[in-house]
Nucleic acid binder design. Structure first.
Lengths: 198, 198
DNA sequence: ATCCGCATATGATCACGATCATATCTTGAT
DNA sequence: ATCAAGATATGATCGTGATCATATGCGGAT
């Protein structure tokens, strides 16, 4: 994570611990930089005057957050710790001058953003699939290893369910059904497709 | 659209017309640059050996496409015209040297990518909302004008339904219900919230 | 060895959005 | 003025994923 930033930037990172519920920044505040989530969860929300929150994103450990703040004078949403959390701040001025001074860093950052865009577009597309089974198939098809047969599972099935936009129950059932139908094989820490596709 | 690129880059753009079904590029091919969709629709897919397609994204007019190709030696998916289409190619070398020569262009590009990431994250979050009504509420809350009361509708309701990941029928019904319940007012080309939230 | 917390299941029920069908209204072209 | 195509509705039915409940398995802490 944060492999996009040069050593110069990384050493300029400032860690900060947040208690659950604590506010990292609020809309309209002057931007100080972008953050990396080290541990815990933050939520990005837009809040109306009545205090209702509209959820924009939940950032978890390893993710970067408020990238657009580099190019804007003020934040456009609120960031609030959902759990106890630790974040690392990369000050705007340092990052931007590093980009100017060292085009390679700038390119690495662009590449990281471009990859994220790709990934997110794919996820949006995945959510257009209504059938749980087809959604799982879509995920498996896009995550097979080089052999086109094995899909390594990182994290728990519950996490995967969240990533797929399914309830864990639905995922458990779907996987059980697919295994019963002989479509997949369930191994320790991975899933194997019965008929490889690559 | 493409307001991120400097004049130098824009004039280097090369247009190309595609017939429906025509392939723009295939996975593994050497990258020549990124594209902007001028008219029509392209789909980005990953194809397995059996010829099955896994849809990654559908790019429509105004969108940019294959941004990550700037930083990779080969494409990682196939791009196929779904309709007759016109695209404009911005050659990799020109774009990249422009980034080095003119940091402002680089920053504009980064900013564009960062905004896209934001937007896509928000959309993914929106898709986590299951109730059609709440999904519409989420959309309205995030798209009110400065007065916190009016939401301008660009395009048709059908388009909006697609953006929300609902069928048009579901959206029509939901809007009708919300209007009947006095939650919203339906004006020409816009929707007004009965109780403003900002 | 025991206990606790959480992941993993699986069952029963239900709400709700998808789907298919049909009708009206709007818009633009000729 | 006429016509066609597409957007906007609205009705009826159905499938399936969400929800609530309950049980078991498993790993880690003490």
């Amino acid at each position: 994570m944060a492999d996009w930033l040069s050593r110069n930037v990384r050493i300029a990172g400032v860690e900060r611990a947040l208690k659950a519920g604590e506010v990292l920044f609020r809309s309209e505040q002057r931007t100080v930089g972008l953050y990396e989530v080290i541990t815990g969860k933050l939520r990005l929300v837009r809040v109306d005057r009545a205090g209702r929150e509209a959820l924009l994103h939940v950032a978890v450990a390893g993710e970067t957050l408020a990238e657009a703040s580099l190019f804007a004078p003020a934040y456009h949403c609120d960031a609030i710790a959902t759990t106890n959390a630790v974040v690392r701040l990369y000050p705007k001025a340092i990052v931007l001058t590093e980009f100017e001074r060292n085009p390679e860093t700038a390119q690495a950052f662009m590449a990281m953003l471009a990859r994220q865009v790709m990934k997110l577009r794919t996820r949006v597309e995945q959510r257009n699939i209504h059938s749980a089974r087809d959604r799982v198939r879509h995920y498996l098809a896009l995550n097979t290893g080089a052999d086109g047969r094995n899909v390594k599972l990182t994290g728990t099935l519950k996490d995967l369910a969240g990533e797929l936009g399914l309830t864990h129950e639905a995922l458990y059932r779907t996987l059980a059904d697919m295994a019963a139908a002989g479509e997949i094989e369930r191994l320790k820490g991975k899933i194997r497709l019965s008929k490889p596709l690559a």
